[in-house]
Design a binder for these strands. Sequence first.
DNA 1: CATTTACACTAGCGCTTGCTTGGTTGACCC
DNA 2: GGGTCAACCAAGCAAGCGCTAGTGTAAATG
Lengths: 192, 192
Amino acid sequence: MNVMNDSPRRKELTRQAAQLFVQEGFDRTTVRMLAQEMGIKSGSLFHHFRDKQEILAAVIEEGTENALGIARAALDDCDSDPGSRLHAMARAHLETLLTDRNAHVVALYEWRRLDAPARSHLSHLRDAYEALWEEVIDEALAAGLIRGDRFLVSRFVMGALNWTVRWYDPDGERTPDELARELVAMLTHPAD
Amino acid sequence: MNVMNDSPRRKELTRQAAQLFVQEGFDRTTVRMLAQEMGIKSGSLFHHFRDKQEILAAVIEEGTENALGIARAALDDCDSDPGSRLHAMARAHLETLLTDRNAHVVALYEWRRLDAPARSHLSHLRDAYEALWEEVIDEALAAGLIRGDRFLVSRFVMGALNWTVRWYDPDGERTPDELARELVAMLTHPAD
DNA sequence: CATTTACACTAGCGCTTGCTTGGTTGACCC
DNA sequence: GGGTCAACCAAGCAAGCGCTAGTGTAAATG
């Protein structure tokens, strides 16, 4: 057990682990399965990760950091009116499902398998992502674009969005852009 | 391994199993832990259930049947206008979280641990529940109360609703009725 | 009274689990 | 050309896993 840095090798192993975690679930995925997928022996795995838990944490960390980066970039690039910003966030969220679906599914379904220290570290990352959403929702509320309780609206929206991993097919007919547009249309109350 | 009927004893055991599955997750819950929680020895467990999988199936089956019953009753008892029906469904959904939260959490998080036969049987039950929602949403769409694509709207609504198990505290300040009202308000576009 | 049924028990088989140990390899460096 | 270091391997340990076999017993049933 030597290193736990973020070498490129470790990044690649993390990506492969995410795939297996989605297919089998964290608990059912054995270190032997992980090693085989990675093309190494099970003992070698512990050169890159302290233990199995750390592999899970690495998967979730990378996925969340990625989503955060994409969302921030989307907000920087879009128009400044609340509607555009709402749409940009929804679109960014759906686009991460194209490139990073596995990590997102793992983050949603296997969060509770994290031990306490990892959970506390990663919840800060997740909070940062949700804070972006709440900011955008606040702006939309202030502009009268949507209405309702600040807290409840963001929970409902996060729910609708996170649920997309269950049914959205990125290779299907609907683009993230179209889908984001539909979601915003459902929520907003334009002054006809 | 004698019986697999639905005796009252088995119902109680199922309820206790749901509790443990939520706390630990299905895979981490051992038959020995289940037996201890039930106050029997691990071998005795297999008198009531064929195997561990069947316990999971029993938990999900009971929870879904319950939700279906409550939703149907709510629809029978409410006014016939689309807004009332939407509200009745949302309220029924949240009310099941008061009495049956464990089973619902298990159904959401451990669905993929079901083997193929159980999954096929239970998905019919779940489809029946979702069909109720789609019916009510269709009525609301037809009445112009909400708008958007039939398929997408129901996915978004189901997402927002199912996500409530993550944050809703039935012992907290907000009643299911209030919460349902907020959700409907967020979705609907009344002709001001 | 005899039999069945429902429920519980003890004991343990066969296997898999996460992880450790002690070592080898080959590329790079001064 | 000796030293360093990440990367990998073979072997295996201790613990725990789902589940089975066979038995005991008290209440219900004929």
